[in-house]
């Protein structure tokens, strides 16, 4: 069935039908960890997007020369290399963002989305399709993180992208870890509700 995916479907599936964060529920660690503000969420989303596209491309190019038995270690080496590249580039050119996200960047290596796409998609499809898949999944991840980060920042700090909406304090719980779980739960519930209505 998946063989007949058009490019458009391939791109959009990562954003809606197979959204990695809200439907596949992969990569919850960075999702919950960095979404205390909208700008952090965007930064993490774009860093992951870059790694996803690059690793999908690299893996689909070398998939035929890598024996099945050492497939996973090879994928991880490739992914880790791209993550380190992102880390170095961020530290060099966006030091402020790096100071905020530094701790979470190395964790992209173990983000299930990246290895998951390598295994489920890039190791089976052509380079072009894999890049589109990485792009779609990365965008889906970024949008989900942005949504989560925006809700948490607005409710928790009464600001958005650092702009104060009101002088009073927000509901602190939304900035902390429990608020991340609560917000994610509500967003997934709404997504599921919408899906049910459609069908």
């Amino acid at each position: 069935m998946e063989k007949t995916l058009t490019t458009r479907e391939n791109l959009l599936k990562g954003i809606f039908r197979e959204n990695p964060t809200l439907v596949l529920l992969l990569g919850c660690c960075p999702t919950l960890g960095v979404t205390s503000s909208a700008s952090n969420a965007i930064g993490m989303g774009l860093a992951t997007l870059f790694v996803l596209v690059m690793s999908n491309l690299a893996i689909s190019l070398v998939k035929n020369v890598i024996p099945d038995k050492v497939r996973i270690p090879s994928f991880i080496v490739i992914i880790a290399a791209f993550v380190t590249v992102v880390q170095l580039l961020m530290e060099a050119y966006t030091p402020a963002l790096f100071a905020q996200l530094g701790l979470f960047i190395p964790l992209i290596v173990v983000n299930c989305i990246v290895l998951g796409r390598a295994e489920a998609f890039a190791s089976r499809y052509s380079a072009g399709a894999s890049v589109i898949d990485g792009l779609g999944m990365g965008l889906g991840f970024t949008l989900a993180l942005l949504l989560l980060g925006s809700v948490r920042e607005v409710l928790g700090s009464l600001s958005w992208f650092g702009m104060k909406l009101s002088d009073s304090d927000g509901m602190l719980v939304f900035v902390l870890a429990p608020g991340a779980f609560i917000t994610l739960g509500f967003i997934i519930a709404i997504m599921n509700g919408l899906k049910k209505q459609k069908s």
């Binding site: 070398v62 050492v70 090879s74 080496v77 290399a81 590249v85 170095l88």
Partner: peptide, 21 residues
């Protein structure tokens, strides 16, 4: 099998070296 893994690792290491520099 071993060769494939060594090659993947070596290429990654060299690429990282460049980016680091």
């Amino acid at each position: 099998m071993v060769i494939a893994l060594v090659v993947v690792t070596a290429v990654s290491a060299v690429a990282l070296g460049f980016v680091y520099q």
